[in-house]
Every structure is written in C-alpha cells, then in structure tokens.
Design a protein around this nucleic acid. Sequence first.
DNA 1: GCAACTTTGTGCGTGCCTTCACAAGCGACT
DNA 2: AGTCGCTTGTGAAGGCACGCACAAAGTTGC
Lengths: 211, 211
Amino acid sequence: MLGELGEQGADTVSSDELAAATGVNPAKLRKDLSYIGSYGIRGVGYEVSALTHQLERVLGLNHRQAVALVGIGNLGHALAGYGGFDGRGFPVTALFDVDPDLVGIHINGILVQDVAAIPEVCRARDVTIGMITTPGPAAQGVCDLLVEAGVRCILNFAPVVLQVPGEVEVRKVDLAVELQILAFHVARRNLTGGDPESNGHVVNGAGGLKP
Amino acid sequence: MLGELGEQGADTVSSDELAAATGVNPAKLRKDLSYIGSYGIRGVGYEVSALTHQLERVLGLNHRQAVALVGIGNLGHALAGYGGFDGRGFPVTALFDVDPDLVGIHINGILVQDVAAIPEVCRARDVTIGMITTPGPAAQGVCDLLVEAGVRCILNFAPVVLQVPGEVEVRKVDLAVELQILAFHVARRNLTGGDPESNGHVVNGAGGLKP
DNA sequence: GCAACTTTGTGCGTGCCTTCACAAGCGACT
DNA sequence: AGTCGCTTGTGAAGGCACGCACAAAGTTGC
C-alpha cells in the first residue's frame, strides 16, 4: 500500500491521509509509528521511502521467507497459484499431498511431493512457514511433520485447533467463521435496540462451532 | 466443533474442557455463554445438544444465507468448489466474473454470469452475503454493485479498503498479512529480550503495507 | 525575522476486555 | 438427610488499548 503511494508520485504522506486510507484513527497510527522511531517530519508528514524502509526492517520483510503448502485440494491449489504471496516476500517453494495422483505434478512450476518428504525437503529449502490446507483429520499429523522439520510458523486453514510446542506460532484462518461473524453482526443490527452489552462477546468466545 | 463432541458420545461438557479445546480462558467462555442465558447445570456442565441449539439460535445459524462470489480467479475458483461453506449454512448460489471465457461455464453446478447481472440475480436469489475475490482495482466497482443489490455483508479478499454505506458490514481477509503477522511474531521472539512494549501494536496499526 | 499554519509525538483520561476469585447451586455418596 | 466435591455464574479488580487534546517543531508567506 505504501508502495502504491510511492509509485503514484507522493513524496511524503501525512498520518491523516494514511489513517483515512486504512480506516484507522490518526492518533493511533502516529503512536504506532512512534514505536519504531520518529521518522516523521513535523509540519510535513512521513517520507514515503524512508517509512517503507523502516517498516520493512521492523516487520522483518527485508528477507524473504520460504513457504511450504500442504494439502493440494481446492483451496491449496488456489493458494499455490496465488501470486500475492511471492509478491509480498513469501515465495511458495514446496508443495505436499498424500494423493498419489497429485504427487509428481507441477503447479506454477513447483513439484508436488509426498508428505513423507516434508522434514527432508523443508530443511533443505530452509522453509520457515507452513500452510496447512488439508482436511481436518489430517491436519495434526501434517503439523507434527512440519514442526519436526523446524518450521515455527504455521497458518492453519483446517477446522481444528492444532497442538504445538510453545516455540511454534499458529494462526488459524476459518473462512466459514468469517461469514458467521458477518452474518451475526448484521442479524444483531436488524434487531432494533438489541442488547448492546453482548456485542461481539459471543463471536469471540465461541468461534469454531459446527452445527 | 460442538457437533463433533455430540457425535463422540459426550452428553455434557464442562467449560474447562471447552476452553482447553479452543485455547480460551474458561472464565471468559462461561461469561460469554452466560450472555445468551444460563443453560449450564452447576456441578455437571453444559448439555451439548441444548448448548448447540441455543448457539445456533443466537448466532442466527438456523436459517441459511445465500452467498454470491465475484471474481472467479484462482482463489474464487477454489472457494466456489469449497464444501465448507454449504455445510455451515452458507450455500454459494451465484458466481460472477467479467471474463467472457468464464461467463457461461459451470462450477459445482453453478453458472458463472457477468458482473452486470449482479443486481438482478442477487435480488432474485435473495443473496445476503457477497464475497469479493477480484483483483484489487476491480473490487470497489463490484462492491458498489453488490450494495446496489441489497447485499449488506461483504467478505473482501482484495487488497483494498472498500468504501461502503454505514449499513453495510465489510470484513477484510488478507492472507499475506496473516503471513506477515506470523513472521513478525517469530522474528520478535528470536530477539532475546526484545522490547515487550511494542508487542503487536505495529502489526495492528500498519496492516496492509506492500513493499 | 516574525507570525500563522501544519503536522508530528505523546501525556492522560476513559472505557472495554480479560481474568481472578468466590458465592450459589447441583449431584453423588454415605 | 447431610455432607462433600464439582461446576456454573458473576462481582470486582487489573490491565490494556483507544482516542482526545495539546505541546513541540517545522514550513510557508510576508
């Protein structure tokens, strides 16, 4: 996003502009930016190139991190072909599945290998991030393999809560839950004067239920 | 998840068990459940079937909501074929794209139509939720069409911040940002004794930057 | 050089969310 | 029937994040 601004010819950008574009409070944005150091100029704004550079440095975006994708189903296939990851510094460098019909084929020039090869291949290619797009029951086994391979970041699309050692960080993405949250908010808004006390609590607390 | 518990033969479940399974604090879980009424039995736990029923009622999961999917690229194609939505009460009932090569084909038995047909088709099929998986530049236009069609929940996968009227609820899903958050947390953890004050602020505030 | 305007950086108050801790209630066992 | 153990439901406290509002600092115009 900052990159776009830079290409559009903007030399500097004010916190108000950035805040309006991202829908965040300007004060909060300035406070966040102040945590990484004072790189703004009072009366002018933030120099786009300097800000971009500093953010990349702090967020660790300056070195690319290899991603392994396990589970070449519908979703996995799409993510393997999604160009957005590589463009943001996360090249998908290894694909895995259990299906013998899938093992051996190439997607976007990347060979699909058997899950048994996860430890070896991930170590060889220095994979630091794993994405799990398998069906739920297979996810924990795959996760264990990734952890064994030294992967310490896992993005989990399977509808299960993964058990991992403390040093491993897991983020869960459940698209159906996203839809439920949306539907819940709108349903609540339709109730004229609905109890404002229970706003969001239920959604946060009971996420992941499956009728 | 509760459904799985029920099938596994558990009649009742305690807040501690549920909390352990979901990784949430037990007290918070109980408080959340208390907001929808007291359906637990002290000394025993929560009756699984009753709790499931109540949660479905409160979360509005008892009536299915039709979903329209716009943008049949890699990701859109995968989501159109993803069975998880229909199983959770969100049947994908309409597909749209601008590409003439795609318009007319069927995915999972659903016809892909031109985006110009969005207002008419969405109204006819009573679509309440829209999912946008178009490239960034096309997203706002598609969004406007959906809003015009009366859609009030939008799940946005495009890397832009959508401008919508107040009554429309938008949720943004950016998978690259998820990876960045993961990478950031692990990078921070590697810094021995890194400044604990700046924990997460930067990630929340500056989400969506693109180098 | 001075005044007026802009924009950053931040101290402080407010309100929400989380979590601890405990009373109330229910079942089992004697 | 009474007691003991277990679990829910909730009051209260603590912490955290958000956002207002203002001082500091820089730029522009005269």
